[in-house]
Simulated scan of single mutants.
Amino acid sequence: MYREDDYLMLSGIQHFYFCKRQWSLIHVEQQWKENRWTAEGQIVHKKADNPYLKEKRKNHFISRAMPVASSKLGLSGILDIVEFTKQEAAGVEVNGKQGLWQPAIVEFKRGKEKKDNRDIVQLVAQVICLEETLKVNISHSFLYYNQTNKKVRVEITQNLREEVEYTARIMHEVYKEGRTLQAETYKNCKECSLYDICIPRLTKKKISISNYMSNHLDEDML
């Protein structure tokens, strides 16, 4: 269990899963730079993050910008949207409403579905935080992709929970050590807002000064 003073940003788990150096630059070094993609992401989240916008219909209502935290993961943050559906046998009590209500998260994403689990890992981390905040069990939640206008249901399996717990633990270890992790190179690196700060081609491999000098001295002697 982590203390509140040690909580890391919930949204950072997606960065860490996708590119640990990107996460290090943002969360350890406090580096940040905007580009087209980060700006579009903010626009997509603008409506979802507005706590004064509420939608409701019979046996269903939406809560926006809900703060959550987990001492188990040591993460805290704000959820885009939580959908509450009225249930007879399971769920939580909600102030001003009768009966029990079962929550499910809807996390908004700017682009389209990813080939890896970066979005899913973030969603599962959010679910664990919401479960701990509301004292409830959640079996599934959703990812909404703005580019494709598609809402994807994600089952919150035990394997995914364990993957999130492991990832969060490594995040805390790296943060505590204050390390900036080594770069990896991906085909989409140049689309990252931190590309000019990261300089992946130069920072991917550590250069040994002794080997560098030795190689160049050998060349000069030829």
Rank of each mutant, 00 (worst) to 15 (best):
M1H: 14
E4T: 09
G12W: 00
Q22Y: 12
L25D: 00
V28I: 13
W32D: 04
E34P: 14
E40Y: 13
E40W: 13
K47N: 11
D49Y: 10
N50C: 04
L53S: 09
K54A: 15
K54S: 11
K56Y: 12
R57E: 11
R57A: 12
S63R: 12
M66C: 08
S70W: 14
L79P: 00
E83L: 04
F84C: 04
A89V: 07
G91N: 05
N95V: 04
Q98R: 14
G99L: 13
I105N: 01
I105D: 01
Q122W: 03
A125L: 02
Q126I: 05
C129S: 05
C129W: 12
L130E: 00
L130N: 02
K135N: 08
K135W: 07
H140R: 03
S141V: 12
F142A: 01
F142C: 05
N146W: 06
Q147R: 10
T148P: 01
K150P: 02
K151G: 06
E155S: 10
T157M: 08
R161N: 08
E162R: 13
I170F: 13
M171R: 06
H172W: 04
Y175S: 09
K176F: 07
N188S: 08
C189P: 05
K190W: 07
C198F: 03
C198Q: 03
T203V: 08
K204D: 02
K205C: 03
K205D: 07
K206P: 05
N215M: 12
H216N: 14
L222C: 07
